[in-house]
Amino acid sequence: MRGILALIMLIVISKAASAQQSYFTCNKLAVYLTNGSVTIELPKVSKEKLRQQIHLFIKERNYVYKPYYSGEGLISFRDFAIICNKNKCGSDLIAMTMFHFAYDSGFVKITLDNEIYSSFYGGELIINDNDDVASKKDVPFAPYEFQIPEQYSDEYPESIYVFNKRGKIKIKNPDVEKVILDFFNRYIVDIRSYFEQ
């Protein structure tokens, strides 16, 4: 009996632990931090030391520092990276993610904005220092559609959800949802491990 109870406890704990790993939620419109932000407690680390560490992190990861959005106690930077390719997701998906690190002695609070682009026709996307995106040779591309009408299901193989004329929404692409969530989760896991080490 004790063994069974211990097993149940173990399952519950492991489920809770794995559920905690997902920092993001993906719905029909966007992917976002479930709690709006993630705070990393770093006791005994001074504000100045944190400022230096954040700048070092940006440099080491080849992210782009954004002075326009930064200020006193706030450092912003962005990444522009491929989430997955057409073979796996039905279209090339590329994310522009803008991170905002609000920091003070002992903590860093992370918030972020993102825009996902879908390049279905194979165009290579480029980004400028103003964070605007275009495609080489102006090959068609667009912001990613999380949901599309049911009758467009074949034309948008990368979309996660479809909805019918009655507005009923169903998931058609759970794999793509997982790929997107995993992609964004990796950022937070990486940040945590960098600053908590």
């Binding site: 400028n128 220092d129 103003n130 995106v133 275009a134 102006d138």
Partner: peptide
């Protein structure tokens, strides 16, 4: 998506001054 790409190009050209 072609309309979007063309519109983005116009913005991109201006904001490329950043």
């Amino acid at each position: 998506e072609k309309i979007y790409a063309d519109a983005q190009r116009k913005i991109f050209t201006i904001t490329n001054w950043a």
